[in-house]
């Protein structure tokens, strides 16, 4: 995950000194990947029943919202706001004592709660797997889903835990020295062009 790889946060979009970077996903690529994931989710779930999309802050949440919108586009019975939520995992991390302090983000669940739901965790980049481990712990304290699945925009490898994604936008072989930057208009400000880039390590 970018969070574990970049202590100062995955929030620094373009503010850092320019380092050699290459774009791996364009805005159109991202959109196509999300469309495909949306179909996969419906297929795996055999419909939209009981589905809940929980984004992991910060960029997982807008991705969950986009996925919900795409689900709603194929199934008009879906209210995207009612099946989308945000799951903060900060307090469940295993590196709290060793990393810069993170201000916790809001956890917001749809009114339905998570009991008996098929929860799809949504995040931008899957890396060590530790964020997802924390997310699973956080979920346990909130209720008992029927099943938990994982959708990520990018899987960059280097897993440190036995965790895999059910739905992947793009598998991206990287070296651990590289940084994967995801830029989304909802987080990085209006005018930002969605993209995923790989930056060379320092």
């Amino acid at each position: 995950m970018t969070r574990t790889s970049a202590p100062s946060g995955d929030r620094t979009s373009g503010a850092a000194a320019p380092s050699p970077s290459r774009m791996v996903l364009s805005a159109a690529d991202i959109d196509r990947a999300l469309t495909r994931i949306a179909y996969e989710i419906l297929e795996a779930n055999k419909g939209s029943e009981n589905l809940l999309l929980l984004g992991i802050p910060r960029r997982g949440f807008p991705l969950a919202q986009r996925l919900a919108a795409k689900l709603a586009a194929t199934d008009p019975s879906i209210d995207p706001a009612a099946i989308t939520g945000q799951l903060d995992v900060t307090m469940f991390r295993d590196d709290l004592a060793h990393q810069p302090t993170r201000a916790p983000q809001r956890t917001e669940l749809p009114a339905s709660g998570i009991d008996g739901k098929v929860v799809v965790l949504v995040d931008d980049v899957l890396y060590s797997g530790r964020t997802i481990r924390a997310a699973l712990d956080a979920l346990v304290d909130l209720g008992r889903p029927q099943a938990v699945r994982l959708a990520v925009l990018v899987d960059r490898g280097h897993r440190e835990l036995p965790i895999r994604a059910d739905h992947v936008g793009k598998n991206l072989p990287t070296s651990s020295a590289e940084k994967v930057r995801v830029r989304l208009a909802e987080i990085d400000g209006p005018g930002t062009v969605d993209e995923v880039v790989i930056e060379a390590g320092a």
Partner: peptide
């Protein structure tokens, strides 16, 4: 928000 949840505890 934690005080309003079923499990009023965080592992931090």
């Amino acid at each position: 928000a934690v005080g309003e949840r079923e499990v009023k505890k965080l592992p931090a």
